[in-house]
Amino acid sequence: MQFTPKILVLPLLAFALASCAPTDTGPSREAQALTDLRALSADEMEGRLVGSEGNARARAYIVERLGEMGVEAVFENYEQSFTFQRSLDFRDPDAERETITAINLVGRIAGTNPGEHVMVVGAHYDHVGMDEDGNIFNGADDNASGTAGLLAVAAAFMENPPENDVIIVAFDAEEGGLRGARHYVANMPEGYESVGFMLNMDMLAYSETDDLYAVGTWHYPVLLDLVTAAAEVSPVNLRTGYDEPSDDPRNDWTMLSDHGPFHAAGIPFLYLGVEDHEHYHQISDTYENMTLAFFGGAVETAVDVARRADAMLDLIARSPSRQPEAVEK
């Protein structure tokens, strides 16, 4: 996640949807998610800064995991590459600039009865790298955790296929501009341009209160029943909030992670993530400092939310935004 929000809590509505309760969770998924979280946040990954060797090592790990599962590559070796300009000194806007190559990873899981729309499930795998003294910003919560959640959702859908086609995207270059998501929305793979819903995961691994936020229901009220039903069975406290327009933009996460460009294109979204905390963008954002029991529950919840969204994808895609004038049609 890019910025530090303040706390704003909106209550859950007190009704439930009799829908698809989670049926495919278990110790093996939790164990694999923990393995992925540890691997992606290891010192070897050097903070996964876009364009770095550590970022490339993280990308290779994700590619290997997708291949092991049998997720179909949409592009060669899953890679959707793009370039952008970055200042050599972020403190000086007039400094010399360099060209950086970033790489999204894009896979497809075929649906059993695909309709007009596809669902995109995404998380960014990059982070901020190292400082001038060589300290590593491991980014366990931000966002090795969301990437591990993404892999868990992919594994669940490979084990029990979705009804609709699901596109799995590990975004690069989220930090500092949501560049990977912006590039993807502007350059969607041929044949998969009709996106009915986007689920984004960014920061799933640290909460002292067991609170996980599902952001987006204010903009897309059709999603409130889905979230309320998921909250009834979630092992963590699944809450809504952080999406209503506010005088303080840090109280509104609508555009603060990779779901933002999808929303701007008029695509309904949910964003799963935690509130700001003491380890956010600090060298203490390490595997050892995460609340791992919460993380396991957050991953289970993400899988459940993805399944529920797949089951009602056509309805979600046809439902209007509360602020249609705020999105680009």
Rank of each mutant, 00 (worst) to 15 (best):
K6Q: 15
I7K: 06
L10T: 14
P11I: 01
F15C: 12
A21W: 04
G26H: 04
E30A: 13
A33W: 01
L34K: 13
L37K: 12
L37E: 05
R38P: 04
A39E: 13
A39F: 09
L40Y: 03
G47C: 10
L49F: 09
S52H: 13
E64G: 06
R65H: 00
Y78R: 09
S87N: 14
D92N: 15
P93S: 06
P93R: 04
T99K: 04
R108I: 03
I109P: 01
A110V: 12
N113W: 10
N113S: 15
P114I: 08
E116D: 15
G122V: 07
G122T: 14
V128P: 05
V128K: 00
D133R: 15
D141R: 02
D142F: 00
D142P: 00
D142A: 02
S145N: 07
T147I: 01
L151F: 02
A152N: 04
V153N: 05
V153C: 09
A155Q: 13
A156N: 00
A156M: 11
F157E: 07
E159Y: 08
P161K: 11
P161A: 11
E163P: 04
N164E: 14
V166R: 06
I168Y: 11
F171D: 11
G176P: 05
G176W: 04
H183T: 12
Y192W: 10
S194I: 05
G196I: 08
F197Q: 04
N200Y: 00
D202M: 00
W218N: 15
Y220R: 09
L223Y: 10
T228W: 01
T228C: 10
A230G: 13
P235F: 00
G241T: 10
D247F: 13
D248L: 09
N251G: 15
D258T: 05
D258A: 02
A264I: 04
A265M: 12
L270E: 00
Y271E: 08
G273E: 03
S284F: 00
T286H: 04
T301R: 03
V303T: 06
D304H: 15
A306P: 11
A306K: 09
R307F: 06
A309P: 04
M312H: 11
L315Y: 07
L315C: 07
P320W: 08
S321L: 07
P324H: 06
K329V: 09
K329P: 02
